[in-house]
């Protein structure tokens, strides 16, 4: 389950995929690689509002200043999008994370419609949450 899903793997796989169906199938598959989200963390503080689906996200920083994110959604596709988003920030430092532009990455994968930067877009709210969680 813990096969490292990194940006490179995702990038390479997407390059091989054809129509939307194959892409969505892969996105859903990526969602299944997310580490289980503990029920104890399904609380108001971790909830990301503004999504049509339910989304939770939390982060912990280790002694070396690297962040470990956990996130979940009840929707398969959203969970997959979370996995893609986290591939760019998992285990990184705050500086590295602030340098990561999720919209760029999503655009590269042809998924930018999910990250349109407006306050009504729930997934964009999630990308924002990563910045909030790491900007202390």
């Amino acid at each position: 389950m813990t096969t490292e899903i990194n940006m490179e793997t995702i990038r390479e796989t997407f390059a091989l995929l054809g129509d939307w169906e194959e892409r969505y199938r892969y996105v859903i598959e990526l969602g299944r690689t997310l580490e289980p989200f503990p029920d104890s963390l399904r609380i108001e503080e971790t909830r990301v509002h503004g999504c049509t689906s339910q989304v939770w996200m939390s982060a912990e920083k280790n002694a070396a200043g690297q962040y470990h994110f956990r996130a979940d959604s009840d929707a398969h596709i959203v969970r997959g999008l979370i996995a893609i988003l986290l591939s760019g920030v998992q285990g990184r430092s705050a500086t590295e994370i602030s340098a990561f532009d999720p919209l760029d990455f999503f655009r590269e994968l042809g998924l930018e419609e999910h990250l349109s930067p407006n306050r009504r877009n729930g997934f964009y709210a999630m990308a924002q949450r990563i910045q909030t969680l790491t900007s202390d």
């Binding site: 939307w20 169906e21 969505y24 999504c51 049509t52 689906s53 929707a75 398969h76 596709i77 959203v78």
Partner: peptide
């Protein structure tokens, strides 16, 4: 097995 958001996102395609 398919929350509403999944249904809407797939139908969109």
């Amino acid at each position: 097995g398919a929350p509403p958001a999944d249904i809407a996102l797939i139908l969109d395609r």
